[in-house]
Design a protein around this nucleic acid. Structure first.
Lengths: 202, 202, 202, 202
DNA sequence: GCTTAAACGAGACGGTACGTCCAGTCTTACT
DNA sequence: AGTAAGACTGGACGTACCGTCTCGTTTAAGC
């Protein structure tokens, strides 16, 4: 008859929620996502398994919330020194550093994996994690357009992907090591294009 | 004492090998990689589990071999009409189509996922699947360089990633639908760069 | 510090008590004792689980009260036609019928089972259900003694068990079907004894 | 299609079977049947749960096999001194002692309980445990019949129940303590019957 | 062709984790 | 204060697979 009876969020135990998120984060750090189990989270958090199953649909969802809860509030705007090339290189070098950090590497891979199995998780990730960063980058690009450094007639969604995707690709498929120099190359090539051109040196 | 005793490949049963690869392929198609189990493969192939464990180190490795065995021999060179932009658009549109094919989509995602857990699988994949395609693309780029359509002083590894990565990014993270038009945009933007038009028409 | 705080019976909700007893009875009928759960009783009765735990110590106790509340008031004296054999046969045939009634069968088994785990429940059952019937039988036996049909120097507690125990034994251990004829045999054999005797036919 | 796939008894591990039976027996002794869990048995036996589920349908069945495996081989004939009353008193006093032994008490109650939920278990119990004892008693009665101590025209199934049932009844329902004297009373009353003395001395 | 050692199918084994169910306790809001 | 509701910790349930380990049974190489 009734849809399987949804729990009442107003009665949710904040204490348990926090304990679960903390335990998950710690376990991700200690043993990594593939070895992470609901049972281990429950045990470490001092929580019944049912409490996890009551509020999250999957292991991936718990991990995602845990990631959100524990990331520092970095979502600021990009630097704007007036030199778009330098600013983008700075950002991409930072991204390279993140990918090379063992902990972040593990968690980000886990997240990427889980998105493959659970598209709804992917949507949320795009909205809450990736989206804001891409938006900030778009803002910086727009600023550069006003400064005449970037062409006007471009689809900014494609632009930001042109910039970030190569890093993601190399990291995810491990085709080659991710270095700061690679970040620089990507920025330069994206800005200048592949064609031979007198004005490339700008 | 003795090293764990390697099996003798010369006595391997070709019949069983094929049955396992076929069963895996069919199960990947039917139930998807995450639900795929060694037991199911063994049962479907009419094979003992040990026979799988004897010859493959992991579920991912079986799947990878199965993928290799069942893909058509496409590894040829890229078309070369003299117009590098048109040729690249053609290739990228084909790639888009592959990503949008439900079966290939599922299997490629499975492969990408498994690479996260098993770097050695990643290396093999890069060598046997991704590498050849990137090499073929590099060849086409080199041809375009000789024709004066592409700058000479570029790191080709970065170039091919500039071209393919945006598709991969959008597909993997599901940030937006993958369309042929998107493929065109990527090619145009990569070739022309992001800077204002003055220098773009080349 | 304080003893665990006994609830005040004067404030007990009669409405809830009845609802619990009714729900229990109905569930016993529907799904049987082994599958009966406190949660199901509470849900069916529209009552909080705590209200059950507050007033009853165990599932068995609830069931016992439910049984008491729903049985008809039968605790009268045995018939006394002057023929003790006939009267006992009548009573034992009625007992056989009760054991063969599917509903009573299930509930009585449940009760018997629960007594094994909870001796205090056993005591109460003996006092309130079994005792009265045995007492009534003892009265009938005493009447027969006065009429010279039964020996004087007998321990009546043993006598009544001689009469009822065989039925209980056969029912509980399912050694053979319980029939009215069996009831007759038991009465005849108990009265006449096992020895070969000229006077047995009476 | 296929019936859920029966395991092949010829490949059964005798070592595991014994370990399970032993662990069960020990746990029955230590914590009692109601607190006995399959998980505890598996853990104590050093065995996977599946191995228990593979070979036994229920907790009760394991316990029953464990009981059978650990009982001493007592299934012999009753004593026959020529005095049936004395012999029966001996047997019933032994039965009383068994019921009063704390370990046997617990296990027998557990068995009796389980029979209520699982009639098939009851049948097996009757066949393998209770039956033989009743048959031995019937043999002794038959011998007494030949000696002229017991009437010829009696249903022996009823006779043995007349003798054993009162003990069982008093034990199971805890109506009164089980004593050797009670055993004697039962034998005397069963043999002599309830009618007045005139015909009783036989 | 016969022997013999390997790979093979089958599947039982000790385990781990799953997702569900319910016990019994605790919390919150209502009567 | 007792109650309805239901979230909580805890723990057993029975299931699904894991990867390992026997079992006979092919099967193919080397004598």
């Amino acid at each position: 008859m009734s849809p399987p009876k949804a729990p009442d969020p107003s009665r949710r135990s904040e204490r348990s929620r926090q304990a679960i998120l903390d335990a998950t984060h710690e376990l991700l750090f200690d043993i990594g996502y593939p070895k992470l189990t609901i049972e281990a989270i429950a045990a470490k958090a001092g929580v019944g398994k049912q409490t996890i199953y009551r509020w999250w649909p999957s292991k991936g969802a718990v991990m995602f919330d845990s990631l959100l809860a524990h990331q520092r509030e970095e979502g600021g705007a990009l630097p704007d020194t007036g030199d778009v090339e330098a600013d983008l290189k700075l950002v991409l070098r930072a991204t390279v550093a993140q990918f090379n950090d063992p902990v972040l590497d593990g968690m980000t891979r886990a997240l990427a994996v889980e998105i493959q199995n659970d598209p709804s998780l992917g949507r949320e990730m795009v909205d809450r994690l990736l989206g804001p960063q891409l938006e900030a980058t778009k803002d910086r690009i727009r600023s550069a357009q006003r400064a005449g450094q970037i062409a006007e007639d471009l689809d900014l969604s494609v632009v930001v992907e042109m910039i970030f995707a190569p890093l993601f690709h190399r990291w995810m498929l491990r085709t080659a090591p991710l270095t700061p120099e690679y970040a620089d190359s990507v920025v330069e090539m994206a800005l200048g294009g592949l064609r031979p051109a007198a004005c490339r040196a700008g």
